[in-house]
Design a protein around this nucleic acid. Structure first.
Lengths: 379, 379
DNA sequence: ATCGGGTTTGCAAACGCTTGCAAGAATTGA
DNA sequence: TCAATTCTTGCAAGCGTTTGCAAACCCGAT
């Protein structure tokens, strides 16, 4: 009997191996594609608290305490442990820690993508602040998960990260609802619509747009075109409102034909720019809802043979790095992007440290940066 | 004796307390900064395989098998399990999985920062390819860890990630040596110097520079300035070599004064540009080692009152998004950045699937993109 | 029916760490 | 000096998975 079983088993295993390759393709569930001589064991040589404990001559719980918190540990013991750890090159295993209930010291960032000056500036801020607090960053891009937000967020928030930062979430509610618990820490940046109990960070969009428009008016413009962002975003409508308010304040009639739909992208700005420039009575200045749109619109103007700013002026919004690299250097409304990222992290860490903490909304102020893309109309 | 010991201890403890705040900063080991009334418990309501197992009426190992591998599972059982999992909203806990020896399905990306068109394009490529393979991304920025690479990498690679991609690592060896095991999977992008047994991805730097220089010569330029990158990077010296080779090929003497040191940044490019422009015999064209430098140099030229391309021509390298947004649109050598990212991921996943796999080096080809920043010298 | 083979399933032991509990040590106050 | 405290330390029980091993099962062939 033993002998037969052996044979059986050997055969079974062989079969198993042979059919694995095939079953990989058949199986509809997400799974591990590995087949071959993959050594499943994680590197053996990894040093654990047990090793450190042995080296230091204490129990492993003591080692854990030294590394994970402020529990009482005798100074000498602590020294001994740290020394032993250094000697051995010990590094905590984050998975184990967070499995066991501790923190992972990782926060998740959910963004549409980072190939965009606006977002990468914010990410820089986040990164800086995180580094200061000994946290790491997990980057999740959303663009291709339309419709699966719930599942997506669930798997993100399921253990791995201590908190989440959402940048420009188009369908905020979908995300929020998927969070594993009522008070899972998260912060919104540039949210769609103000969620009542959410922490969030944004900038004075209305005021910024008002200032920019006001500036154009002050140097003599009366026909001022406006290029919107994606209108689902509240930043976008706020900017539009600011623009209208400034016009109204100066008793300039609001002319709907001067408002062109954009999408916060260069292409959309280009199209909107064309539309405005081709107007029978062309505007003398165009205020775009963000720098990318402005750059697109400028291109449209240039193609039409217009000189900037002599023939037509432009103002952008955001002050992404490209704004000052563009030619002519773009006059724009600066959002403190890096700072926005930093503040978001601070709010988030606050909330992680104390889940009871009330949600807060922080609005940072914008600033008009005057560069070379504006001039009074017609000489 | 006891008494002395007491004193000693009291003193030790006091010292300890007083120095804690300080030690937080000093301590090289990462630790949890939290103090307060932090409820350490993770959300209770999380669904585990055990719940799914109960719901489906099978054992938890079966559930595990359904979600993690190709072990034999009866079709019906599988269905039942999946259904139960969906009903309950089960999501695998990555920490537990990877602790238990499975994969984390996370790869780490080590980059100097992402606030830079070059890198964020590559990251986009990485992201795309990773999404396709069901992997997630952990982002580590390096700039502030000078001198601690070893510790840093160790903590990264210790369990959490299945593999690592290093972008432009200035001190590659330091990183590589810190990897937890001889064959921990990693891929280099744009490495410093070719590490013998490393997988890496790069572009035809030499050829690209040769082509660009050749192009300038072909439209009539003879005095061609060159702005270098950081010379530690092999990409940088390769480009310089390509430039020299093209000159030589056309029997143009290499003039050291026409080579200015840059650093791949706009500022450095600006300074180098000034230096070249102020030369007693000004070059009629400048080839910058990357687009950012070119943009900086263009600014320097413009400040000097030169018209581009009429008075002086410029060529860049990389073709980052800004290159086509700049004015005039920059003629440049395109690197397939997105593709570089994608290939890196593919190499990495290959290696993860089969650690025995030989390291490979992939070199993608560059392409000269002619736009508006070049013209024949002097009309 | 019964047997032998492969196929499914379940059990239990990790993985490395945190933390409640309790015992031991040191300190304090009387 | 002794009890009452306050510190320290160790033990052991998880955390949610994976996976080797072994028992149970199913099926066709005898």
């Amino acid at each position: 009997m033993p002998k037969e079983r052996c044979f059986a088993n050997v055969f079974a295993v062989t079969c198993l191996k042979m059919t694995r390759l095939f079953s990989v393709y058949c199986n509809r569930l997400q799974k591990d594609m590995s087949v071959s001589k993959n050594t499943r064991k994680k590197s053996q040589n990894s040093i654990t608290i047990v090793d450190v404990a042995r080296e230091a001559g204490v129990s492993y719980s003591t080692v854990s305490r030294v590394f994970s918190g402020f529990e009482f540990v005798n100074g000498d013991t602590r020294e001994k442990v740290i020394e032993a750890a250094n000697r051995l090159g010990y590094v905590v295993n984050l998975q184990a820690r967070s499995l066991a209930g501790g923190r992972s010291n990782i926060i998740g960032l959910l963004a549409p993508g980072i190939d965009n000056g606006y977002i990468s500036e914010i990410v820089s801020g986040i990164d800086q602040e995180l580094a200061r607090s000994n946290y790491d960053l997990m980057l999740y891009t959303t663009h291709r998960y339309a419709g699966k937000e719930a599942f997506y967020v669930k798997s993100i928030a399921n253990g791995l990260v201590d908190g989440l930062i959402l940048i420009v979430p188009l369908i905020t509610a979908n995300y929020i609802q998927a969070l594993p618990s009522q008070d899972f820490p998260y912060v919104l940046i540039d949210q769609t619509d103000s969620m009542p109990h959410s922490s969030s960070v944004d900038a004075t969009n209305w005021q910024g747009a008002y200032d920019a428009t006001n500036y154009l008016i002050s140097i003599g413009h009366r026909r001022i075109g406006f290029i919107t962002g994606q209108l689902q975003l509240s930043s976008s409508t706020e900017r539009l409102d600011g623009y209208r308010a400034a016009l109204q304040h100066h008793h300039i009639a609001y002319d709907e034909s001067l408002v062109a739909l954009g999408d916060y992208q260069t292409k959309g700005g280009y199209a909107a720019g064309q539309q405005l420039i081709n107007l029978p009575q062309r505007p003398t200045a165009i205020f775009a809802s963000n720098d990318l749109s402005a750059i697109g619109a400028i291109e449209a103007a240039r193609e039409r043979g217009l000189r900037i700013p002599n023939d037509i002026s432009f103002v952008g919004f955001d002050d992404i790095p490209q704004a000052s690299l563009a030619y002519p250097k773009l006059t724009t409304v600066r959002q403190p992007l890096v700072q926005i990222g930093q503040v978001a992290v601070r709010l988030l860490l606050e909330k992680i440290d104390d889940p009871e903490k009330e949600a807060r909304r922080v609005t940072l102020s914008t600033e008009l940066i005057i560069r070379d893309s504006c001039a009074p109309p017609h000489g």
